[in-house]
Computed example of a mutant assay.
Amino acid sequence: MLYKFDGKTPRVSKTAYISETATVIGDVTIGDNCYIGHGAILRGDYGRIVIEYGTAVEEGAIVHAPPNEENRIKDQVTIGHNAVIHGAVIEKMAVVGMGAITSLWSEIGEGAIIAEGGVVKARQIVPPMVVAAGNPVKIVREVSEKDTEFWRWGKKLYIELAERYIQHPMEPVTAVYPPSD
């Protein structure tokens, strides 16, 4: 659901998919070919959220911005299931793994990968093309060609999934129970 708040209305590309069970509030801009998954929450109530082309915000993720500031997620970023993105800048092609957290004013470099459950501290900067893991995250290695190929495939998968959801919207159904013996 999209909600106007404090005079600010979400702006969404016609080619973006937002689940009917997601919540998008206030000053939020969602670009072309984005996927906003079921149960995701994007709170543009204090600050502004900008999500650029081809980004996937997967199920249960929360995105928020500090008061009067911007949380910018650039082209073809993957935000994993149940991740928390708070006041970060995430450069293009980066990945924030499932359950990971990016804290206030953190920065994730282009193509960087934050491992599942990783915690990026306030003001921490993760350089481009590295894999970072832990709490707080530390660089564990450089991004490999195999990583890049996998995440290109994953990003394409979510762009195509957004298209499928737009073409074939979800429909409520009544539960079907198997016959009893």
Rank of each mutant, 00 (worst) to 15 (best):
L2K: 11
Y3G: 09
T9P: 08
R11G: 00
V12S: 03
A16G: 04
A16Y: 01
A16C: 02
Y17N: 08
I18A: 02
I18D: 03
E20G: 15
T21I: 01
T21G: 05
T23H: 09
G26T: 01
D27T: 06
T29S: 13
T29R: 13
N33M: 03
N33T: 06
Y35R: 04
H38Y: 07
L42N: 09
R43V: 04
Y46G: 00
R48Y: 01
V50Y: 08
V50E: 15
I51Y: 03
I51H: 01
E52S: 12
T55L: 02
V57R: 04
H64T: 02
E69P: 00
N71A: 12
N71M: 10
R72G: 09
D75H: 15
D75Q: 13
Q76G: 07
T78V: 12
T78R: 02
I79D: 01
I79W: 05
G80E: 05
G80V: 05
V84E: 01
H86N: 05
G87R: 06
E91P: 09
K92M: 04
G97Q: 04
G97Y: 00
G97L: 01
A100H: 05
A100L: 07
I101P: 14
I101W: 02
S103I: 03
W105H: 14
E107L: 12
I108P: 04
I108F: 11
G109H: 11
G109L: 10
E110D: 03
G111N: 11
I114L: 08
A115Q: 08
G117F: 06
G118L: 09
V119R: 07
V119I: 14
V120G: 00
K121H: 13
A122W: 12
R123W: 10
R123E: 08
R123V: 08
V126E: 02
P127L: 03
P128R: 04
P128D: 08
M129L: 12
M129G: 03
N135T: 12
P136Q: 04
V137T: 02
V137S: 03
V143A: 10
S144H: 13
S144F: 14
T148R: 15
E149P: 00
E149W: 06
E149L: 11
F150W: 07
F150R: 13
W151Y: 15
W151C: 10
W153E: 14
K155R: 15
K155Y: 05
K156R: 14
K156T: 02
L157N: 12
L157M: 13
E160C: 03
L161A: 04
Q167G: 13
H168P: 07
H168K: 14
P169R: 14
P172N: 14
P172G: 11
V173P: 00
V173F: 01
V173Y: 09
T174C: 05
V176F: 12
V176L: 13
P178E: 11
P178D: 11
P179V: 07
P179C: 02
S180M: 12
D181Q: 15
